[in-house]
Design a binder for these strands. Structure first.
Lengths: 341, 341
DNA sequence: CTGTTAGCGCTTTCAA
DNA sequence: TTGAAAGCGCTAACAG
């Protein structure tokens, strides 16, 4: 398919018998033009349906007014919300956004960075893939002074700004809630151990246990690979334990939901047999039966704060020194845990 | 923040004392270069961490290898899946993707088109907003010969390719299913009437009724504005009808789920009091209680087919003549409708 | 085998 | 008040 030709300033200039620079000036409403010329040009531009070529502009000023975003996957409601927040607020400040997903692989994450950088984005907002356990690609763009920050899935060794939730605090809240509603043996189902959130949420879990004077029991920490099969496997293992926990806190909602579904199929009652809680507050968590106690993470807000901070840095409103923005989470108690007495 | 300077060919050239075009040739592995020079250049480029400037390349060849995508909202699981399919397969063919959301408004849809066109995307994949009831902006890009197609939320008056589901067929399947499982009075809860899918799904609904020799009852068609409040209002109206339907088919899952939740709160049992079905097969529909009978629409597949067709047209593999691609849907019977005898 | 030149569309000095 | 010229980074036709 031949792409339709776009009108250029040159063509308007020829049609009107003036120079290209005059067109340029007229179109950006320069004051040093004769009103008549300006009027003629503006009208002609409209008539010919002229649209500026952002590519050319960007090349000239070496700025694209475009930001790159890399998320593990777009179909996750949480990341979709982040993207939404990023996009709305980037647009508000005159920026466009290019979105890529790493599909949770290091390889694609690297490739995405390469393309976005080649596309001359003015900055990057990155949420790391599950696989990302080495950071050369990030240090590389850091050394090349390409402005970027990390959000949600971050790493603490890269000297750039980070936007995270208070994962430790959220996990503390929900574990405490389980303990307050009568659980004595609370289990933590984690994701892969080198994930930032796996660690942070475990800290919160341990913190709450400690506060209640409970010695952590290694048998009460399990690690899922976060696939459906992996989650169900954990559900099964728990069901078959000689001495089961009476409350289970899962690192993310999908784990809890998979376990819940499996338990229902084998007749385990939640919360009577075991209480269950998740983290993230996915839309799904509200409609399962029983509705799942979880911790709300405002994704849109995270996106908004992230992009705002990065643009503030780009625009010189904020200092270039890395900062850490921590968003608070909110406990959402539902029927999958018992009520407070 | 000052953006780090990107190495250019010019700088490599100066460092090596050769001309820029030699650099260019070496970097694209031109055969007409002395192997030594080539080697020196490639090594130096690597050492200096050279990355080609896609902007400059694009400007030169008047092609960006970038596609624009406009969806009503990214946080919908269905559209997120479409995007995922689009992105994966665009990348596979060397294209990047810029995604925008219209937030279901005509105004943003227009603005998005403007930006994407100004950014010189090579083509557009558009799913119309709910508000879109005039089409000047589409005719405009059509007249300007910018390649694009419509998917899912389409309009039949624009002479471009369309990718849709067999909405009529899916609605027929699910209505038939309700009738086969014993319902006598099946209601259709539609969205706004000028929505393409509202119409198409109604046709399928009427088709099934007709096949079962049932005269459509205007009291058995309701229209929701698709907000939570609107959906609940419909749920309430149904509950208060003197002669209720015994089966309700909702145009999209969220409507069914909102109604289900409301009904549960007032003690109406599904499917015993009334059977209920949706459309789309949102992840949520599988985990509500009872699980919702629905019609599966493979979003990823739709994205994949859409982008493949558009790229085929761009690459001259497919004809420029508009075609209509229709994807089949699958009935997913679950417990919110009674079982077949 | 390599350099020179021109040009993609636009903006911005510098001159007139 | 307007035009000419240079340049953003890259490629390709043309010349050597």
């Amino acid at each position: 398919m031949k792409k339709g030709h776009q009108v250029t300033m040159k063509e308007i200039a020829k049609k009107l018998g003036v120079s290209v620079s005059t067109i340029s000036r007229a179109l950006k409403d320069s004051p040093e033009l004769h009103p008549d010329t300006k009027k003629r040009i503006v009208e002609m531009a409209k008539e010919m349906n002229y649209q500026p070529n952002l590519l050319a502009q960007s090349l000239r000023i070496s700025r694209t007014n475009t930001l790159g975003v890399i998320v593990p996957e777009i179909t996750s409601h949480f990341f979709a919300s982040c993207i939404s927040g990023i996009q709305d607020h980037a647009n508000k400040r005159g920026y466009n956004v290019m979105i890529c997903q790493s599909n949770e692989t290091l390889e694609l994450e690297k490739a995405n960075i390469r393309t976005l950088v080649a596309s001359q984005v003015d900055g990057l907002l990155i949420s790391l893939s599950r696989e990302t356990n080495q950071f050369d690609h990030l240090l590389d763009i850091y050394n090349r002074e390409i402005p970027f920050l990390l959000f949600d899935r971050v790493n603490e060794d890269i000297p750039v700004s980070r936007v995270t939730f208070n994962d430790e605090g959220g996990a503390y809240q929900v574990t405490k809630h389980l303990l307050e509603t009568g659980c004595k043996r609370v289990m933590y189902v984690s994701g892969p151990e080198d994930l930032y959130i796996s660690k942070k949420r475990k800290e919160g879990y341990l913190h709450a246990l400690n506060e209640f004077g409970i010695t952590p029991d290694p048998a009460l920490v399990k690690i899922s690979d976060l696939t459906i099969e992996g989650n169900i496997k954990i559900g099964k293992e728990i069901a078959e334990m000689k001495s089961r926990p009476d409350g289970v806190f899962c690192m993310i909602d999908p784990v809890a939901i998979d376990i819940l579904t499996f338990w229902k199929s084998i007749g385990i009652k939640v919360p009577d047999d075991m209480a269950l809680a998740g983290f993230t507050n996915n839309p799904t968590s509200a409609v399962v039966e029983p509705p799942l106690t979880t911790v709300a993470q405002p994704g849109y807000e995270m996106g908004k704060l992230s992009v705002t901070h990065l643009l503030d840095q780009l625009d010189g409103i904020a200092s270039d020194d890395p900062i850490s923005i921590v968003l608070e989470t909110t406990l959402v108690p539902r029927q999958s845990t018992k009520a407070l007495k």
